[in-house]
């Protein structure tokens, strides 16, 4: 072997892949954060429902807490279940 790789340090960036650009609840872009947070990133994550709709976690939690009877997805009115695939 003429050239051997001893170390390799990779650099990569990550982005959310959601099926929409904006959060359906707060209308803020998914690249940004929910209105209550200051910085986007790990502290303000996205979550998906089984209906495949996606929101800021903080936004959907607030929405679910405000619903007294049925926990529904605000977009499609199906019952809300977290998709933990």
């Amino acid at each position: 072997m003429k050239v051997i790789i001893k170390n390799w340090t990779g650099v990569a960036t990550w982005k959310w892949i959601a099926n929409d650009d904006n959060c359906g609840i707060c209308r803020m872009p998914f690249d940004g954060c929910c209105p209550d947070c200051k910085l986007p990133g790990d502290d303000c994550p996205l979550v998906w429902g089984e209906c495949s709709h996606c929101f800021h976690m903080h936004c959907i939690m607030k929405w679910l807490q405000s619903q007294q009877v049925n926990q529904q997805c605000p977009m499609c009115r199906q019952e809300w279940k977290f998709n933990n695939k």
Partner: peptide, 16 residues
């Protein structure tokens, strides 16, 4: 739900 993009122009390697 995250997508990785490799930034090869920033990666470093140590070669022997």
């Amino acid at each position: 739900g995250r997508k990785l993009t490799w930034l090869h122009h920033l990666c470093l390697a140590e070669l022997r």
